[in-house]
Design a protein around this nucleic acid. Structure first.
Lengths: 245, 245
DNA sequence: CTATAAATGACAAAGAGGTGACATTTCACC
DNA sequence: GGTGAAATGTCACCTCTTTGTCATTTATAG
């Protein structure tokens, strides 16, 4: 056990202070570009494994299960396209970011058809690549459910941040949306003001509990058929609020 | 090592009146920060155990099975990341809250990938840390406890704060719920009025014992089939009350 | 700078819990 | 058994807390 710990600690070469964030698999045949990419991700504390051809890339993919793959489409032997599809077949959850020369005619639709999650055209800024990779990883974490919710004639889309009663759109502010989202995620449960402040407003700001009441008031005015007789956003005296669809 | 353990496991034995809420394991190498954290959780009636390095942290984790772990990522010997993953492997249900210096480039998503449940960047407010820890503990507990209770044709849901006799909903106030919850949690035991006042009303307020009788009365009227001949909320003359399902 | 949203504070309204008086029951002692 | 003191049941009233609502101030975004 201790041995295992020691062993895995040993995997980190330098700075023990900087945590390794995950593994990035780079599949790229140009050695110079390999070096560049390796540096880009190393300095941001990722572990990097590199493959110069498709077969090696596939092997490394299987063995390392990287957090993301950087894939140059132009490869010898196995084409980048094939490799992309194969990797996606193995693990659809691993984001693949494609590198492509600007000269290539890149049809984004085609790329997405292959299963790629994003693409960057050379020459690219390290910053941009990093941002796209991190975004892709982040997206993977959130399975991106339908994020649509219906209750009592209202339809909410938390991704689009839109609300409608029938065909009539209801304007909601971002706070109102977050609050409403939290309510829908915890329907039927009594939620105290403290809980709501912590979970919806955040831990750093401490508005008075009056603020919660106010937002509730606004939501009721916008969503309840009869705001003075709420049927969905209920007050539980001495406890907090409860949402019932 | 043993010495350090004994030293760090400085559990507070005072105030018998305040119930211990659970154990918090703090893994932090900076002694000053250790002290601060220890105080934060002690005053909120948690038992605190502290480790100055990863190996000690792991040992304490195994032996104490804490309700939550506060983990500083920067640790000597075993890296915080390894420790986090190891603890998560041992018990995924124990929430781990990571402390990180603001300077570090910390991607929350990747932290969560490690298994951490939340993170707080230094410098942090004790309130914020507390709120996050409690939220994490609450989240862990949620799916486990159905929080529903049945007796004599009545069904109680303490999360929704609803009570039903068959299909007929019974309106109960929040105090009545708290009292009833305490009774169900200590069924068959004789509970003195003082005990009830302390546990249900709180330690700071001292209403007369008549108040308890009143609430009992209300509960009987609402829950007992024949309020004048109680079969569940029994009076124990000279001692208090007893709940029998 | 303007417009919008969020936070705050003040006040009113409602509801719940606490209190005390009195009736009733229980138990102990005779 | 009968009696009395103490404990408990019950009720109505009152008070205080909690909440609804609006106006105003402060913050934020464009």
């Amino acid at each position: 056990m201790v041995k295992e710990l020691e062993l895995s600690v040993g995997e980190q070469e330098e700075s023990a202070s900087a945590p390794r964030l995950g593994t990035i698999l780079i599949v790229e045949d140009d050695p110079r570009m390999q070096k560049v990419l390796q540096r880009v991700f190393s300095v941001e504390h990722y572990t990097v494994v590199t493959a110069g051809d498709g077969q090696t890339g596939l092997d490394l993919f299987r063995t390392h299960r990287p957090a993301a793959v950087i894939l140059d489409l132009i490869l010898p032997e196995i084409s980048g396209r094939e490799l992309c599809q194969t990797m996606k077949a193995i693990s659809n959850d691993t984001p693949v970011i494609v590198l492509s020369a600007v000269a290539e005619v890149v049809d984004k639709v085609l790329l997405l058809e292959l299963g790629a999650d994003d693409y960057v055209t050379k020459p690219f800024s390290p910053r941009e690549l990093m941002a796209r990779v991190q975004a892709a990883i982040r997206r993977r974490r959130r399975p991106a459910a339908a994020m649509t919710y219906r209750f009592a004639g209202c339809e909410l889309d938390f991704q689009k941040m839109t609300a409608r009663r029938g065909e009539v759109p209801i304007p909601l502010t971002s706070h109102e949306f977050r609050l409403l989202k939290f309510f829908t995620e915890h329907a039927e449960r009594v939620l105290s003001r403290e809980e709501l402040l912590n979970e919806v407003w955040g831990y750093n700001c401490y508005p008075t509990t009056r603020t919660v009441d106010n937002q509730i008031l606004k939501l009721r005015q916008k969503l309840e058929p009869d705001p003075s007789n709420p049927r969905h956003l209920l007050t539980i005296y001495g406890a907090g609020y409860k949402f019932v669809p």
